[in-house]
Design a protein around this nucleic acid. Sequence first.
DNA 1: GTGCGTGCCCTACC
DNA 2: ACCGGTAGGGCACGCAC
Length: 830
Amino acid sequence: MKTNFIPVDYDYFDFNGKNYAKIIGRDSSGKRVCVIDSCPVFLWAILEQGFPAEKIKKLVQEIGKIQLDLKGRQTKVEKVEVLDKNFLGQKVKALKIYATNYKDLHDIADRLALPGIEKRRGYDLGYTTHYIMEKKMIPLTWYEIEGEMLHNSNEFGGIDSSLDVDFCIKVKSFKPIEGGGNVGGNLVPLNFKPKVLVYDIECDEIKLGEGEILMISLVSDNFKKVLTWKKSDSAPDFVECLKDEAEMLEKFIEYVKKISPDFLVGYYSDGFDLPYIKARAELHKVKLALGLDGSQPRLTTGFDSSAKIKGITHIDLLRFIRTAFSQYMESETLSLDEVSREFLGDQKKKFEFRHSSKIKDHSEWNSYFEYCLHDSVLTLKLFEKFWQDLKEFSKITREPPYTLSRNGMSSNVEAFIVNNLERFNEIPEKRATYDEIAERRKLRAYEGAFVLEPVPGLYEDIAMFDFTSSYGSTIVTYNLSKSTLLESPEKNAYHIEVDGKEVYFSKKQGFFPEIFKEMIEKRKKYKQELKAKPDNVKKARSNSYKLLANAAYGYQGFFGARYYCREAAAATAAFARKTIIEVIEKINKSDYKVIYSDTDSIAFSRKGKTELEVLSLLKKLNSELPGIMELELEDFFTRGLWVTTRAGTIGAKKKYAMISKDDKIRIRGFETVRRDWCQLARRVQDYVLRQILKDGNEKKALEYVKEIIQKVKKREIQKNEIVIRTQLKKPISEYKAISPHVIAAKKMEERKIPVTMGSLIEYYIAEVQKGKKTKLVREKVKLLDEKGEYNIEYYLDRQIIPAVENIFQVFGIDIKQIISGKKQQTLGEF
DNA sequence: GTGCGTGCCCTACC
DNA sequence: ACCGGTAGGGCACGCAC
């Protein structure tokens, strides 16, 4: 039989000692399909150079005899081939050693410590990755599958009857049909609209499993439910009331089974909702049979706990947003509330939490139900917002959505590389061992980006250039990678000084730079197409390539990477520094004045020059840049402000504010954008910066600051404006320095408010009793609900004045003197 | 006792 | 441990005077 099929969730199983891929997806009519396939299982043994042919023959025979009987499994070497391959760009002879079971490859590799074998590779990819590499069944891509339907057959131990799918098919062959699929004899474009079910729980205790789950909300297309066992007489229709917590859990399982989603989605559900549900289910002896095969979710614990459900892709949306989007977001935390505000213009429902034993009132319960339901509604909307990105990213890297959505960027880069190796006939490099990682981490940091020290001042008519994919283009231009690094100097090679030593890279294109060259080209192509005719798919594609290209540099410097190469990472930074410094000099020589530069951007004064002249300068600079290096115009700005550091006279780096010619304000590094300053100081500074950029002088801004200071002195400031928020980056006990936020965290712990690594600690600085000696800020720390009055001196001297004083200093105004009422030196006013 | 350099810590920039 | 280095700046600590 034939069917259309789109793979979503990848798994595998053993049958009679062999591995089989078990892939769950849909056909074009929306039926749930399980596809069973297999692929050859093998690892590589790279031979020593010049290992004689007759010895190879003997080695092959010897290896062919390897048999293992481990873990109740019999595995043997099935076949050995001698092949010409590449490893790190070098031509090698390698043995392709086929074995019975993927799980035994490690043990077989251990038996290959034989003369003539230099390296063993390809046994540490995991079966799913191995399968996708071999058979190229790319996630979320349409295929036409030909195979044998399993009808209550005994094949594979009766797998088809144990799986809750519409049908199960054993693959003979398949081919991609991205252009469209055969439906009733016609070629039609195939769409995949995944079935998504979102869930969210509410409980009294935050600690996993320690309280009762009061309710579970479930939201899907045209489906909204809150399951609870708390009685509420006038509950809205969406509330379904069960007898007790156990029955509620049973009902939850029932609905998941009934709806049978492709994606079961939560927000922080890896770390909270699913582990909590599992703990409560265990307590009540409810079998949490959510998997399509009736299995329970598999939880991995630890720092990055994750929760896998067989056949249903469980997505913790928080994790995908964190890796793929957080660096481009405005939100200061990744809370559902804040992220929803940024992407949906919606927010969580207001609800004042109390312990459920104190909630008697029906309307309060109903608000609670509404609150819980809305969390799932928001999460569903967010999933829909990010679905195209998840899909395109998954297709491009060939990493299944379950893994992709949890990976850090380096893992996704690595998946992309590994899945592209075959085109280069490359044997995959192994994962670093624990010891290797430890060694790499000990190495001291290499020199990074160039940052130009600005001269403080208010500038007018500014242009800004930046390099497109600066580091990515540098890697490509100078062929920087592990496989192109030369052990000894060569004449015709790229070279640059790193740590006082010259490093050399071959000019013969390596696979790593080649892969990134294609990536940058595709990114460019999709960006142009997107600009010409925008749609979500192009946007997602363009964004995926952008993320990957930007991560290439970090990847090579990341100690856990298969293709880690400190020299390449250091050389990338060095070449990028050299390039930008040369461009800065050229701009200065062309009768412009460079004001500031950081890594890949250059801001300069274009006073007396037209925009057209600037563009022709850009063209000239580009014509002189090496390789694929390219500068583009970021924007024209009417004004820009640079200040000194707090310490005094030198210009502060990474701190500036500009207003573009179409009045868009860009503020970088200032306290305004730092979440560890109180709202009041941030708001005042933001106003001051904006006013100065708009007016070109400080007069209105100064008046405003004076007003605010009066308000502070009169205690007219609201409490929410003086809260200081700082994240706890490690367990409280590990802090050597006891700073204010650590004190606040300790106070919270005393009150049994859960504080863990990553918690955002909120506190304010209060007045202390008269006569009490207090030097340290931490002695004045109070939690928000602690009674007390804010410390006027602290908020003036340590928050507001520091936030604005070096801005006014640019105009020759000493704000401290003005405030204290002493002699005024307002040079700027004359 | 005060002042200042230093290290820890957090969060920004790119 | 889950991409890199560069940088500003608050706070506590400890030494010098």
